[in-house]
């Protein structure tokens, strides 16, 4: 996903001269080509995420579409108020990019796990969350974000995720994307890098992905939910404030709410040392 992201961003920057990339002193062996090709639009802000984010908002207010890039919680929680006040409240075109969504950084530990980021970002009224499930969804999301500039959050896994789509999926906020055919009455619906786990435990059920979602996109969920009797959501995030929680809120008080079964990471993984696969298994995402 990381490689799909930087390849696609570099390609888009060649045709959009307002795209800028600011990194928080991270991105070794990832951002070099962008930096070499577009030195005027690449900035290493240093280890200073609050300034990186305020700075991005300032540049965005002057016509740039700025991408801030860092690991897991650093570009989100560390500078949450800058995202809330400077970017989201002013509806500025800044895309916050976090690499290492979920527990992708494994044994590096809790400081490097993004398992509450949806909760933070989905609380922002104008924010679009882009949580692609494979490299093709990453490219599709990025193209959508560049075509529709605004406050946004792109949550990536790491590198080397498998490709699940055969062609570029058609993405839009709130729109479920079909990934695997199967039984339609009971389905799996995942967001982000949990897509692989959703496919693995589908057991004949159809698998869908929802890579773009937001507060505003809640409105369209009841129609899509109505087509199925049981929807099992999967996310590499804690249940509280997460994706399943979002979907349930979208139809709270209606019969559709009862057909949602959210599966999310158990908080016990927050205290453990283990690799990604093990944390996802112990957390209840995979078997």
């Amino acid at each position: 996903m990381r490689n799909a992201f930087i390849e696609e961003l570099t390609a888009l920057a060649a045709t959009h001269d307002n795209i800028a990339l600011i990194v928080g002193d991270l991105g070794y062996s990832v951002v070099e080509e962008f930096a070499d090709r577009f030195p005027d639009r690449f900035i290493n802000a240093g280890v200073a995420e609050q300034n990186m984010t305020g700075l991005a908002a300032g540049m965005a207010s002057e016509g740039y579409h700025v991408f801030t890039y860092s690991i897991a919680n650093f570009p989100t929680f560390r500078c949450a108020e800058q995202i809330r006040n400077d970017i989201d409240h002013h509806r500025l075109p800044v895309t916050v990019v976090a690499v290492g969504g979920g527990v992708a950084y494994g044994a590096l530990g809790y400081s490097h796990h993004a398992v509450q980021d949806y909760a933070l970002m989905r609380a922002m009224p104008h924010m679009i969350i882009a949580a692609p499930g494979d490299p093709l969804e990453t490219r599709a999301c990025l193209r959508w974000l560049v075509a529709n500039p605004g406050p946004s959050y792109l949550r990536l896994g790491k590198a080397g995720e498998p490709r699940f789509h055969e062609s570029m999926p058609d993405v839009a906020p709130g729109r479920w994307v079909p990934v695997r055919d199967g039984r339609d009455e009971a389905i799996m619906l995942s967001t982000g890098a949990a897509l692989g786990a959703a496919i693995a435990r589908a057991a004949g059920r159809a698998v869908w992905s929802l890579p773009l979602w937001s507060m505003a996109a809640k409105a369209e969920q009841s129609v899509q939910l109505a087509r199925h009797e049981r929807v099992t959501t999967l996310e590499d995030h804690l249940a509280d404030g997460g994706f399943g929680s979002w979907l349930t809120e979208a139809v709270a008080g209606t019969p559709a709410a009862a057909c949602i079964e959210p599966i999310a990471l158990s908080p016990e993984i927050c205290d453990m040392v283990a690799d990604q696969a093990t944390l996802n298994r112990i957390g209840g995402l995979t078997s």
């Binding site: 300034n51 305020g54 991005a56 300032g58 540049m59 207010s61």
Partner: peptide, 11 residues
């Protein structure tokens, strides 16, 4: 100041 710094950099 961070926001203004972004504007100044853009300028």
């Amino acid at each position: 100041l961070p926001f203004g710094t972004g504007k100044a950099l853009a300028g």
